Amino acid sequence: MPVDTVIFSGEGPHADPWHRLAETSATIGDLIGGPVTIVTSVDRLAAALDGARLLVVNASADRSTPIREDEDFARVLDGFLGRGGSLLATHSATLAFPGLPRWRSTIGAAWEHGRTFHPPIGPSRIRRTRVEHPITIGLGDIEVHDERYTDLALVESADVVPLYVHDEGGATHPLVWARTAGTSRIVYSALGHDVRSYESSGHVELLGRIAAWLRHET
């Protein structure tokens, strides 16, 4: 059966010491269903995406400067989105591919060192916005054990549609949003620090809705 979804699970320069990406990638694959393959190498990504509808990027970086593989990834991503593929970027993906403007503009934000932070991980309530969107029809607020990314550097031109937010420091911060780029659908979800996040029934339901929208099933 052809692969429907490819998960790029960061390793080496596309990982960090704080996230167990292999574990969360496996969990995401189990939850979203369909024929899924997990790849950990940019060199293998283009071939893996042949015929796929959805790319999930569950990656990070413990560095501040780009490497050659970042540009290789950008070329693969451009080709995939250019043919109408959809993208889900999760949690620490805002740290991935540092210094790569194409990645930042695609997902709509980046972790900015010295500005972006998160309160201590723990039980949190994530609020649904009033935005009407196929992903969130019938859903409510979510209780989840997770980190709440705060003060992400948003890209104004990305025209993001915030679906879930949290409150911190007297301000409201977007956590999950959706956007389109041409015929491609793109979602960023700051949820998913570790597998405990996916023990939340609300998060599992949200992830399923996201996958269905990205696969053009809703």
Rank of each mutant, 00 (worst) to 15 (best):
R148L: 15
L95C: 10
H145T: 13
R75M: 12
L55P: 00
E71I: 01
R125D: 11
T150L: 14
S60K: 01
V195N: 13
T136Q: 07
I121H: 07
H203P: 07
R68T: 07
E147F: 14
D78S: 15
D62P: 01
S105V: 09
P35R: 15
V144N: 04
A110I: 07
S9N: 08
A190R: 00
D141E: 14
V76C: 13
R125Y: 06
F117G: 03
S184M: 01
A15R: 01
G138H: 06
V76H: 04
L191N: 08
L55W: 03
R68M: 10
G182L: 10
G140E: 11
I28M: 14
R44I: 00
E147W: 13
E168L: 04
R20P: 10
S86D: 02
I142Y: 04
A212P: 15
I7S: 07
R125I: 13
H133Q: 04
V39D: 04
L95G: 02
P174K: 06
H118Y: 12
H216P: 07
I121P: 09
P17I: 00
P2G: 09
W213F: 14
I121K: 14
P162Q: 03
P13E: 01
T106H: 03
D43I: 01
I142C: 05
G85P: 00
P101L: 10
S197R: 03
E168F: 10
E147C: 06
A190M: 12
A181T: 08
I32H: 11
T129R: 05
E132N: 15
A48I: 02
R104F: 03
